[in-house]
């Protein structure tokens, strides 16, 4: 691990991610844990571990809602870091959809990795990973096999409520009226994807969409998004680490790697 050149920290509301990258931006090391309310201590420990492996001091970039609580780090918002991280990993400009637990962002990335425009969901949970989590939990549908379940559904059962609370009761009544479970789950994904598609308005037609964030690991969501946006969606490698990688890139000495 002698090649480590920078550390990136992404303190999200649900998970805390710490990565090390080398001078070309390649991912060398990572730590992912549920976020501890005592952020300072957790970050210090995780960064310490990575430093120890690297064997020397490294510049630290921080992002996420706890970014300002990371001592000695350059703090930048998730928007800027996700753009940088996605740009480095995809190797090109484009539109990124990042779906995390609390936030969904759509970021337009320019030809040198800069942010051209961005949009975020409004403060309620509708349109975020949390929405799905709550309702799937209520339906007792496990994450494993979700993509297959949805892919196998013959038709989506429309779920019109976008408020998490309303949708929960709507879904329960759909179950009670004997609508097929796979169709309901598909309907949920369709509803969520349409919320995201609304955020992504004005995206140039035909563009392949890049996707990051924990929800990108849910194949059913990726498929629904592909349908809602009617264009290809490409999931970035290690999608949940995109922000942390971007934070590390922002403190990499020398010119930004392409």
């Amino acid at each position: 691990m002698s090649g480590a050149a920078a550390i990136g920290v992404d303190v999200g509301s649900t998970t805390c991610k710490v990565v090390a990258i080398d001078g070309t931006g390649a991912l060398l090391d990572r730590r992912v844990e549920p976020t501890d309310p005592r952020i300072e201590r957790q970050v210090e420990r995780l960064v310490g571990e990575i430093r120890a492996t690297a064997g020397r001091e490294l510049p630290v970039g921080a992002t996420g809602y706890g970014r300002k609580r990371v001592a000695g780090a350059r703090a930048l918002t998730e928007i800027t870091c996700h753009a940088r991280g996605a740009f480095a990993r995809a190797g090109r400009a484009g539109t990124l959809v990042d779906m995390g637990g609390q936030d969904t962002k759509v970021i337009r990335i320019g030809p040198s990795g800069e942010v051209l425009d961005f949009a975020m969901n409004d403060k309620c949970a509708a349109g975020t990973g949390r929405f799905l989590e709550v309702i799937l939990g209520r339906l007792q549908v496990p994450f494993e096999g979700l993509a297959e379940l949805v892919a196998g559904a013959s038709r989506p059962v429309p779920v019109s409520s976008t408020c998490t609370v309303f949708a929960e009761s709507e879904v329960i009544s759909l179950v009670a009226s004997d609508e097929p479970l796979d169709g309901i789950v598909k309907g949920l994904h369709v509803a969520l994807a349409s919320r995201v598609a609304a955020l992504a308005r004005g995206v140039p037609a035909g563009d392949e969409i890049l996707m990051s964030g924990g929800v990108a690991l849910n194949g059913a969501m990726v498929a629904s998004l592909r349908e809602a946006l009617s264009r290809p969606v490409r999931v970035l490698p290690d999608p949940q680490l995109t922000g942390a990688v971007g934070a590390a890139l922002s403190v990499l000495p020398g010119p930004a790697p392409r």
């Binding site: 019109s160 409520s161 976008t162 408020c163 309303f166 709507e170 329960i172």
Partner: peptide
Amino acid sequence: DPRSWASEL
């Protein structure tokens, strides 16, 4: 707008 309507509630 039916999106503000919660039938069950």
